[in-house]
Design a protein around this nucleic acid. Structure first.
Lengths: 246, 246
DNA sequence: GCGCCGCCTTGATCCGGGTCAAGCCGGGCG
DNA sequence: CGCCCGGCTTGACCCGGATCAAGGCGGCGC
């Protein structure tokens, strides 16, 4: 990343910040970029680090948009309520992932975000991020890419896939996302209740239960309450093929 | 939009371009921006204008990404093929809309784009657009917003909505999008075959046919082949409520 | 004008998963 | 220890929409 340090604003010089799972850091990771530069830029961007207890809201639909949040620890659920008050789960955000990108458009959050377990996250001022992006071409293009990446993400929800296909894709998605952040891809916790999984996959909770049982009976997984082991990733992948397409 | 014209590159001085339905023009529209400035910036961005006959491909999955396309006339269908070769329709792009935003991430097109009728479109160099965006803060934020807007768009496909709800939302969406570009919101052509509508809505073609018939019988629409009139927008809106949420 | 072909419609049947209704099981608390 | 409560599982039944199978109909070529 080409950073002309002379052009960087000199604010935030004092603020020390190190956030190894922050989205920004991940944006820059694996590119052989000078770590000092990354840290410096990150210090400019990160507003604050905050914690939330299980069940607390990070933001609510309609809240004014000012910053993007990067999850450092815990799981965040985003959802909307329809006119009858029924919940609709939009997604789960794991450590290292970003929440709130869809708020840029309307300048206010179009959904609610809730901590499913104790959550640590840091907030980026989007205004400051944009200003920096204008100075650092590579940061700009990374932002564009990050936004573009999310456009195609809805594939898991859309499509007329069977319950098995949806569930396989969901478990694989979790596995891959944990792996990317350095966690085990074959053993992790389902940090969300079954009802949320069901809601997210557009299935009935009973169906989720039945599918998970079938996966266990077939030796694809080993599962005890929320403790999950993936025994046969290959089988999961072939099940999820129609959904994930690779 | 604050444009410091002194900072604009002086390329493209000779190229005359006027494209009243181009995405960029629409980005700037309704903001009281000096028309000359818009035209000037547009001239810098627009690479070329090209035409496609019905059935021709605009790009195919895997093609290298270089430019974003704005539809000036006609309808573009985007779709992917799964491993078994079965088509999956991702969306329809009407005049004034943009195709290819989801290619920024991977630098190659993740789907195919096909002209459903004779199509005119113009291509924007995304590289040049980014460069300009760095100079013009408002352009950058408009681009961010455009990308962000698309992230939430998949709602129509996702969700476990009934056939009636999906169809109502689809027709309303077309109506509103045509209206935004100055076409009639109550009478327009379904420029795509029923099979494509069905595929897009994740329904069987037979179901599409039956739902359209029911809408006609109920006096909600008047339809003859592909010529569609919306007689009762209110009823459509209340049907589509769960899908569109406003 | 006639016949073919593609797109669309209509009817009959079937099935995946939703819904309803109980039970299970583990964790927290008195 | 025993009770309660919430999250999860299991079973029985039902329904919306897919699937299968025929036609209808309009446009185009010969």
């Amino acid at each position: 990343m080409a950073v002309n340090s002379a052009r960087l604003p000199e604010a935030a010089a004092g603020r020390a910040h190190s956030c190894s799972t922050c989205a920004f850091t991940n944006l820059c990771r694996n590119d052989g970029i000078d770590e000092n530069v990354v840290a410096q830029v990150e210090a400019l961007l990160v507003d604050e680090t905050s914690q939330y207890a299980e069940g607390q809201h990070i933001f609510r639909e309609g809240d004014p948009f000012d910053s993007i949040a990067a999850v450092r620890g815990g799981t965040v659920k985003t959802y909307v309520l329809d006119r009858e008050g029924r919940e609709q789960v939009l997604g789960f955000h794991l450590p290292g992932e970003v929440v709130g990108l869809n708020a840029i458009h309307s300048q206010s959050f179009p959904c609610n975000a809730l901590a499913l377990e104790p959550v640590v996250l840091c907030r980026f001022s989007f205004r400051r991020m944009s200003e920096l992006a204008a100075l650092i071409p590579d940061l700009q293009s990374r932002l564009f890419r990050l936004l573009s990446e999310d456009i195609g993400k809805a594939a898991l929800l859309s499509g007329d896939f069977s319950a098995d296909e949806r569930m396989a894709a969901f478990l694989l998605s979790l596995s891959r996302r944990y792996a990317r952040r350095g966690f085990s891809p074959t053993r992790f916790n389902l940090t969300m209740p079954r009802t949320d999984i069901a809601n997210y996959l557009r299935l009935a909770p009973e169906t989720v239960s039945r599918v998970l049982r079938r996966f266990r009976d077939d030796g694809i997984t080993q599962i005890d309450r929320r403790d999950l082991r993936l025994l046969d990733i290959g089988r999961l992948e072939s099940l999820a093929l129609p959904v994930l397409r690779h």
